[in-house]
Amino acid sequence: MDIISGLTAGLVMTIPLIPASMGFYLALRCLKFPDLTIQGSFVFGLVITAYFIERGEPTNAFLFSCIGGAVFGCITGLLHMKLKVPSFASGIITSFFGTTLNYFILQKAFSSSAPIQEKNLSNRGFFEYFHQLDIESTTLGQYWFHTILSVTIVCVILLILVWLVVSSSYGRKFSMFGNNRQVAAIYSNNSEYYMVIGLGFTNLLVGFSGFLCAQIYKSADIGQGTTILIPLLASVVIGEFIINILKKKNSLKFVSKPLLSSFWGISSAPFIGFFIYNLIVLIFSTVLLPSVQTSENYSKYAISGFLILLIMVFNKKYSTTSNQDELI
């Protein structure tokens, strides 16, 4: 029972990162842009939320984290499209710029004279209501029920919104111009505009994720930006893999393809992928490794080894893909 509640707790704590996973996925697949800006825009979401929550203004926190994230994305887009800075470099440059800004905001939030790396918040903003319901309660179940309920509602609304955007006429253009930029140049003179706005939208989701995280974790940590990249990348691969299996139903083939045609696939793959990835990580770190009394430091070795094994087995047995470049 403890294991199950531990796993559930661990999974719940990753739910606020799902919008970031969605943003990263849309940038990578729809815009074909490996967007490293998320390091900056995610932390911006965290620190700006910290700033406004300390002032008791969660609505402003919501607005500014989303707008700020979108601005970060647009800056990256403009650097890439107008100044022809390569995609990786433009993301890194914006993140560098963002890091300085983030330190400044966090310093201001807690009226500190020296830069702060990490700080706990005084309350949970919008989630304070749910928290207060049973903050002092000893029944863990009730607490998680309320947290799961509130965060899941937010994420489901987000999923529906993203699905609506992606399946709209604008969303189709957004993914098609990212999918084939040469086509974009042939058909439209505004393709650069779609790219910039597209990156703005994906980073808006990442900023929103920062907003959720700051409230759920009740802390703002500048270093968190660098730790979210690998889970997000893993969620892309795993999510597409699972959806492709579901689509093919009876034929289990390790053909991980971008789900650009299937709009429900676009909107659900990062959710599923992120969930499964975290489940694997949690099973290793909370169940398997403690059972063999191994240090938690070795969990990453074990997880990477497991993933390599999994991919090797599937590739050997079922691989039919000739598009290796599509795997990531």
Partner: peptide, 10 residues
């Protein structure tokens, strides 16, 4: 180069 190869014919 003028189509969307990853998209369906539809």
């Amino acid at each position: 180069d003028a189509l969307f190869p990853q998209f369906s014919l539809n």
